[in-house]
Nucleic acid binder design. Sequence first.
DNA 1: GATGAAATTACGCCTAA
DNA 2: TTAGGCGTAATTTCATC
Lengths: 165, 165
Amino acid sequence: MTESVRLDPVDLEILRLLQNDARTTYRDLAAAVGLAPSTCLDRVTRLRRSGLILGHELRLDPAKLGRSVEALLLVQVRPHRRDLIDPFVERVRALPESRSLFHLTGPDDYLVHVAVTGTADLQRLVLDEFTSRKEVARVETRLIFQHWSCGPLLPPQEPGPGPAG
Amino acid sequence: MTESVRLDPVDLEILRLLQNDARTTYRDLAAAVGLAPSTCLDRVTRLRRSGLILGHELRLDPAKLGRSVEALLLVQVRPHRRDLIDPFVERVRALPESRSLFHLTGPDDYLVHVAVTGTADLQRLVLDEFTSRKEVARVETRLIFQHWSCGPLLPPQEPGPGPAG
DNA sequence: GATGAAATTACGCCTAA
DNA sequence: TTAGGCGTAATTTCATC
C-alpha cells in the first residue's frame, strides 16, 4: 500500500505534464514525450492502477462562490481518544465550510482549512461548530492572506546509487 | 475578480458531480441533471469562463513516489518586508518537497505543507532550506498523521432572502 | 500502430420568458 | 429580444487488438 512505484524518465515527464494540466490529451502527451498516444494511454493507465494517481479533482475559486474569506483553524480535541476524535473528524469533514483537514503532532491536534463568506461567518463557524463542542478544548484562528500551490510532486532526487552492483 | 457567480440548481449539481470526479463525462452529467450533453458542455464552459472553475488537477499519492512522510512547517520570516518575503515565497514554492504554501495572520507568517522521504530528510529540509536562511526567524515542525479532503465546495446556504422584493 | 467506439466540441435552430 | 436548451455533425480521444 505504501510501496513506491518504479518510474522511468518518460513516466516522470508525463506526471509533470499532467500535474501542470490534468486535462492534457494523450495526443499532446505523446508529442511531448516522443511516443505514440496509445503508449501514453498505457503509461497513464498503469500509473492509475498502481495507485499513484488517485484521481482528478476540480480546482475552484471559493471567492467566486461567495466564500471570500479563508482561514486555518488549529484545534485541540481533548481527551484525545478515538471515541471522541472519530466523530469530530466526520463532523468537520461534513461542514460545508471545510476544505481540508489534517491530524497533526504538536500542541494542536487538528488543522482545518475553511472557506467562509466573511469574518462574521467565520466567528459563527468557530463558536457554533467548534468551541461549543465539549471535546474541543481550544481553537486558534488564522486568516489566510494568500495561498499558493507549488511545483509538481516528483520522486526525491536520487543522489546516484553508485556504479557498483 | 472577486465577484460572485450566479448559479442555478443545475449548476450546483454539476459542480457537485465534477468535484466528486472531475472526469465525469458530459453524457453522464446530462443523465444526472436531466439535460442534454451539449447543454452540460455549455454550462461547464460558462463556469470555466467565469473563473469559478480554475482548472483540473491530478491527485497523487506522495507515498507512492517515495515521499512517505508529510509535515507542516510554521515559519516566521523577519523582518516581514516585501523585499524579503517575496524571494522567500518563490524559493519555497520551487522546493521539490513543497506541496502548498499559505501566508497567514498570527504569530507564524507562513505555513508550508511538505512531503519528504523520511524524518532524516525532513531534518535536512528544515535545517538546510529554512533555519539556515537569515530571514527565517523560527520554524515549528508538525508531522501529519493523516490528511482528509472534505465534501464539495458550494455556495453558502442562503437563509432565504424573504418574499418581499 | 491502426481501428472502431465513444466523447468532445461548435453551431444552428427552437422554445419560452 | 434574449437566454437557455436541443440535436447534429465534425473532430478528437479512448481502448482494444
